[in-house]
Design a protein around this nucleic acid. Structure first.
Length: 424
RNA sequence: GGAGGCGUAGCCUAAUUGGCUAAGGCGUCGGUCUUGAAAACCGAUGGGGUGAACGCCCCGUGUGGGUUCGAGUCCCACCGCCUCCGCCA
C-alpha cells in the first residue's frame, strides 16, 4: 500500500511510478478525488463531534447543579447532532471503503535504480558466476533422468492430484530433504538468521497485509469453509509476524528464515514449463525475510541476495543475477533481483530465487512499525527472498550433476546431509 | 464441538451506580544537574484532520456494530488467549 500522505503532496510522482509499472495512471486521480471528499467530510464530522462533546460536558454539569431544564434542552440538541453525525459517518464509511479498495490495487512505486521497461526484455544482468558445464555426452532433462531412475513419478502424482505435481522416492526424496536442511543450516549458522516454523494456512487478512490479496486471489488455494488460504510462500507468515506491533530500533534488523511448502494455483501459466517439476502447484522453499530500517534497506537487500547466492556457490551451480525492470517486478516490490540457475534442459538460466525490497509497502498494510531512539514511530522496511526454491535446486542438481550412465553425483556440500555420494 | 473466564498505551497495572483531560508505575528518548555516570527533577513517547507556523480539533481501552446527550464501563457479533469437558495425531 502506498503512503496516501506522500501521494497528496506529490501526485505527479506517483502517476509516473504507476505508468512505469504499466498501470493506468487514472487510478491516482480517482483515488485523489475520493480522498478529497473524505477529508472534507472528516472536517465536518470533527466539528460536529466537538460540539457534541461540549454538549455532553454541559449536560453533566447541569445535572450536577440539578438544573434539569437546561439539561433537557441540551439533550435535545445532542440528539439532533448525534443523528446528523451518524448520517455523515455512514457516508464517510462508504468513501473509506472505496478509497481502501483503490489503494489496495496500486502497485509499489519502483526504486530509482530500477530499469524502466514494459517487460522482461528490459531486465539487466548484474553478474554471472560459474561456467555452464560442457557435456561430453548428450545431457538429459530432469524429467527423463528422474523417471529413468524410477525415483521421480509424475504419472502417479497426476493420478493423485492432477497435473503439476510430483512424487519423489528414495534417494531423490532424501536429496530434497537434505537440501532443506543444508539451506537452513547455512542461513542460521553462518548468516545469522533465526529459524521459524510457520503455519501453512493463514487468514484472509494475513494474505491482504502481505499483498497477495485482493489482486491475486485467483492464484491462491482457499479453504472455503473457514476462508483460510494455503500460503503461496513462507513470505506471507514471515512478513506478518509482527503485524500491529511497534518494534524497538535496537531489535532491527530482524532476520528470519523459514522452510515451508508453497501452494500456487498457477492460474495464468497454462502451457508454461509444462514438463517436469519446474512449475508445480506445490513446492518446497526456504525463505529469507528482513525487518530493517529505511535508511539501510537497499544495502541489506544486497546482503540478502548474497546469502541466496552463497547456496548456489556451495553447490557449485552456475548462475546469474538479474535486476528486474519496472514492468517485470511483482506488485509489492520496489526493487527485485532474480537469481537464475543454469539448466541444461532449457539451455538457459532459470529463476531459482527472487529477492525484493518492498520498502514500507507491506509494513503499511500490516501496521508493522518501529520506534526510533528519538521516539518517532515509523514503518519498517521489509525484504524477502528465496534462499532458495528447493524443488528447482533439486532439478538443477539432477541436470548439472548427471553422469553418462544416467546416475547423479551428489554435490560435496550435500554429502553430509544425504549420507551418500551418488544417486542411485 | 460444549461450558466458563479474560483482552486498557512499548510493557505492567488502575478507573463509585455510564459523566470533566484513561490515573499510576516501568521502560525508552531528550533535557537540567555532573569531570563522567548514577540518582533526582522536568519534558516527550498511538492515529488522523486543518494550518506557513505557535496551535486548534477529532479519533484511539482486541475488531466491528448497537443503546445513550455521553461508553473502558451496558448489549450483540467476530477475533485472540486461558481453564474445564468432549473428540483427536
Amino acid at each position: 500500500m502506498i503512503d496516501i500522505k506522500m501521494l497528496r503532496r506529490n501526485p505527479e510522482k506517483f502517476k509516473e511510478a504507476v505508468r512505469k509499472r504499466g498501470y493506468d495512471e487514472s487510478i491516482i486521480d480517482e483515488l485523489l478525488k475520493v480522498d478529497k471528499e473524505w477529508r472534507n467530510l472528516t472536517s465536518e464530522i470533527d466539528k460536529l463531534r466537538a460540539r457534541r462533546n461540549e454538549i455532553s460536558r454541559r449536560v453533566a454539569a447541569a445535572k450536577r447543579e440539578k438544573n434539569n431544564e437546561e439539561a433537557n434542552t441540551l439533550i435535545e440538541e445532542g440528539k439532533k447532532i448525534g443523528d446528523l453525525i451518524k448520517e455523515l459517518e455512514d457516508k464517510r464509511k462508504e468513501l473509506e471503503e472505496k478509497e481502501r479498495e483503490i489503494l489496495l490495487r496500486i502497485p509499489n512505486p519502483p526504486h530509482e535504480s530500477v530499469p524502466v521497461g514494459e517487460d522482461e526484455t528490459y531486465n539487466v544482468e548484474i553478474r554471472k558466476w560459474g561456467k555452464p558445464r560442457e557435456f561430453d555426452f548428450n545431457p538429459k532433462a530432469h524429467w527423463d533422468i528422474g523417471p529413468d531412475l524410477n525415483l521421480m513419478d509424475i504419472e502417479r502424482a497426476g493420478k493423485l492430484s492432477g497435473s503439476r505435481f510430483v512424487i519423489l522416492y528414495d534417494k531423490l526424496a532424501r536429496l530434497e530433504r537434505a537440501l532443506i536442511n543444508f539451506m537452513l543450516d547455512l542461513h542460521t549458522k553462518e548468516h545469522g538468521y533465526k529459524e521459524v516454523w510457520v503455519p501453512h494456512l493463514v487468514k484472509r487478512e494475513t494474505m491482504t497485509w502481505s499483498g497477495q490479496l485482493p489482486k491475486f486471489e485467483e492464484e491462491a488455494y482457499n479453504t472455503k469453509k473457514d476462508d483460510l488460504f494455503l500460503i503461496p510462500t513462507a513470505e506471507v507468515p514471515l512478513v506478518n509476524l509482527h503485524a500491529g506491533e511497534i518494534l524497538s530500533e535496537n531489535d532491527l534488523p530482524l532476520k528470519y528464515v523459514a522452510y515451508s511448502p508453497c501452494y500456487r494455483r498457477e492460474a495464468g501459466s497454462y502451457g508454461k514449463d509444462v514438463r517436469g517439476m519446474i512449475r508445480n502447484h506445490q513446492f518446497d522453499k526456504v525463505e529469507l525475510v528482513w525487518y530493517t530500517k529505511p535508511e539501510r534497506s537497499y544495502e541489506d537487500l544486497e546482503t540478502l541476495v548474497s546469502h541466496a547466492e552463497e547456496v548456489l556457490k556451495r553447490l557449485n551451480l552456475p548462475y546469474r543475477v538479474i535486476l528486474l525492470s519496472t514492468g517485470d517486478m511483482g506488485f509489492t516490490a520496489a526493487k527485485t533481483y532474480d537469481i537464475e540457475v543454469w539448466l541444461p534442459s532449457y539451455n538457459n538460466y532459470k529463476e531459482i530465487s527472487s529477492c525484493s525490497n518492498t520498502e514500507a509497502f507491506q509494513a503499511r498494510r500490516s501496521k508493522t512499525r518501529f520506534r526510533r531512539k528519538n521516539g518517532n514511530v515509523e514503518n519498517v522496511h521489509l525484504l524477502n527472498g528465496s534462499g532458495l526454491a528447493v524443488g528447482r535446486t533439486l532439478v538443477a542438481i539432477i541436470e548439472n550433476y548427471q553422469m553418462p550412465d544416467g546416475s547423479i553425483k551428489v554435490p560435496d556440500a550435500l554429502v553430509p546431509y544425504t549420507g551418500f555420494e551418488v544417486i542411485p
